[in-house]
Design a protein around this nucleic acid. Structure first.
Lengths: 130, 130
DNA sequence: CATACTGTTTATATCGACATACACAGTATA
DNA sequence: TATACTGTGTATGTCGATATAAACAGTATG
């Protein structure tokens, strides 16, 4: 099996969430397409040196969000309408931006300053990830 | 003592957080001004039918955030920093932008698209307000 | 200094999130 | 049907967040 994700066990964020996000990312980026099988929970557990149950937890949540489907004895695959599940992210994104805009207006922040800040936020993120 | 807050003990959000938010709001709105004393932890505990320690917890966090100052034997008051209210909003704004940036990165949204979206959010708001 | 206010400290209890092991169960195929 | 894959269920353990009571300590003022 090829190289997969890396997870940090001491990074605040729960492991199962890190796994979920990296899988969503693969799907969002088009790396994994609808119908394609994804690693078995056991393979992934071994690869990440994590319990099977933790992977199971991640897959279960992903299924609830409509990103993957799982069948007993078969395995898991990217859902046919995986985009639907990912639309959830876009909605969240929209909500945060709306709220940000509201607050910005409240304290009289100009559009330029706001643009400036969103850039900073992106930069900060990029630093953290490296 | 006048009417204060209402907190829901079954509303998911921890009580001490609900208390913090309502106090911040009072300050931000200008209802409580710099230097003004705020209720003693005991008074508030009685009023909200909550333990003294829970109020203490809320006040402690508010102090760490620089919203209030507390002195043993005296009580608590809104911090001198007149800018407090605005700073609170700025922090919230920052949080929303950080989260937005994180989500954007997660779904592979380009910086340009993100800029586009924050503009849209601003436009939407302007329409709603007119 | 007694009293009646303030906040603080310590020790404890409860609860849910996170992670786990191991036994159980479905599927495919040689 | 034996084997080697898949996922599932149960029972357990750890840890941190939340909330508490009761005793302790500072401050002001008659």
């Amino acid at each position: 099996m090829e190289t997969l994700f890396t997870i940090s066990q001491t990074d605040g964020r729960p492991m199962y969430l890190q796994i979920m996000e990296q899988i969503k990312q693969r799907v969002a980026v088009g790396d994994w397409k609808s119908g394609e099988k994804i690693p078995s929970i056991r393979d992934l557990a071994v690869a990440l040196k994590v319990s099977v149950i933790t992977i199971k937890r991640a897959y279960l949540e992903l299924e609830r969000e409509g990103v993957i489907i799982t069948r007993h004895g078969i395995g898991s695959a990217v859902a046919d309408d995986a985009d639907t599940g990912l639309r959830l992210y876009r909605e969240q994104l929209e909500k945060h931006l709306d709220e940000a805009a509201r607050l910005a207006a409240l304290i009289g922040l100009s559009a330029e300053e706001l643009q400036q800040r969103i850039s900073s936020a992106g930069e900060k993120l990029r630093k953290e990830q490296s």
